[in-house]
Design a protein around this nucleic acid. Structure first.
Lengths: 250, 250
DNA sequence: CTTTATTGCGTTATTATTACGCAATAAAAG
DNA sequence: CTTTTATTGCGTAATAATAACGCAATAAAG
């Protein structure tokens, strides 16, 4: 949405294009400088941050809508994106909204449920683009997230919980990294997400024994010590593990 | 819904009371004669079975709606009920419906997404009540479920999957049994749900070591052999295990 | 009183997880 | 060019968890 005209059309007749009473909201996680970060948006006119979201078009499959919304906000395609919960319980989600700046009869003032998705993206590849509705986007360390708009704190908590649980069943962590990564890098990532230290010697052993990572033969020169090797994820083995439902206890 | 008048009012003006484009559908699981069964409904006018469902009232919290719908269908309250996925991808869920028996402009012909819940109930306590829309309810062994209406086969598969996964994280199995049960009973239940045999000696050992079940001191006389003891679930320990997120590998 | 089927309790074997020790090595400092 | 420093990579031992199984106890039926 670029122009004021488009916005006004959306406010007035958006319900002809989109399903009312329902949004998709997305916790977009990135990893940078040993921190797990979440992408937050500041809306013009509203005082505070929330996670990005959007509406489902009338004949659009749900997962297509989720991917479209993610692409609109981050320019990313084909990233790890997973539905985790649908929200309709909080006070905010049980009744109509009191957005003073909207016409009294706008479809946007109706009650909205929210289908929650979370995405794991490569932090450095995200290019956010502010539009006429959003003042700015910020990456916030999940340990420093302020009070968010609506029920988005609860939503973020639940997204994190599902993501961490999933980390034990699917080796999804690599989706936050570059194609090639060192063992210390992926270990540090897991330590950050799980919030606990892992043994430097046992962790790679597990990944190797499952066949999830492959040695590329290359090394990366970083600092005054032995150069660590570069590894890649084995997509074939990964898919197999997902199918068989491994439990990666690290 | 009891009378034809109510039905017609619902078809015509239901969208004033309920949110459109969205249903709650519920896989209701029961356990009987060593079989895991699911409650299916046959609709008048439609040729085939589906899982029970309903609409969310305009200002009704989502979980309240789910519990209300469960109660309407089974007369049960305060049972284990859990949301697992929201469906909006299948062809059926991506476009408007062609229900010939409904007026062309009925809100019920609009596209509907479905929020999937599953419930674990005590089979013998369920009293289904057919109404003007449902011809009959049947309990079907999950191994013999026929082709269902809409996308309900996919929905059932996903419900089962989530339930089985959850069984490893939360000791939810007992919700399918009577208050007091024998060790062979609960073991047989787990074997049925997980579809694999468990060791008769190791299984109770695990439940006992976690403190999840308590010996009542009573026994039950059943047949030509030693009478098995009756156990109950320790709700306090159960809640603690849920909170701490145990992994019950059996 | 004997037979039969099944329960309850134990012990042992196997496997997985956790905890460390130490040599290899790359870059910087002397 | 040698030494220092920080970190990597590989191994092995200690511990814990899981799986496998033997046998006595016992309730009902013949």
């Amino acid at each position: 949405m670029k122009t004021e005209l488009e916005i006004n059309e959306f406010i007035k007749n958006g319900h002809q294009t989109y399903l009312p009473n329902l949004t998709i909201d997305c916790a977009i996680f990135g990893y940078h400088e040993q921190q797990l970060k979440v992408l937050l948006a500041k809306w013009k006119g509203l005082d505070g941050y929330s996670m990005p979201g959007g509406y489902v078009a009338r004949k659009e499959p749900l997962s297509v809508a989720a991917n479209r919304i993610l692409k609109e906000k981050t320019s990313l395609e084909k990233v790890f994106l997973q539905q985790f919960y649908t929200f309709g319980d909080s006070e905010f989600r049980s009744q109509n909204q009191k957005y003073e700046f909207l016409p009294k009869d706008s479809w946007l003032r109706d009650r909205t449920l929210a289908i929650g998705y979370y995405a794991l993206v490569n932090y450095s590849r995200v290019t956010v683009e502010e539009d006429i509705l959003t003042e700015q986007y910020v990456w916030e360390d999940i340990k420093k997230v302020p009070k968010l708009l609506f029920d988005h704190n609860e939503m973020l908590e639940k997204a994190l919980h599902h993501m961490r649980i999933n980390l034990y069943h699917q080796p999804i962590g690599y989706t936050l990294l570059e194609k090639k990564f060192t063992l210390p890098e992926i270990q540090s990532l897991y330590e950050t997400i799980l919030g606990k230290p892992l043994d430097r010697r046992n962790f790679p052993k597990k990944l190797m024994s499952l066949g999830l990572i492959k040695d590329t033969g290359e090394v990366r020169s970083i600092g005054q010590h032995r150069s660590p090797r570069l590894y890649t994820f084995d997509k074939k083995k990964y898919d197999q593990c997902i199918k068989e439902g491994i439990v990666l206890v690290v």
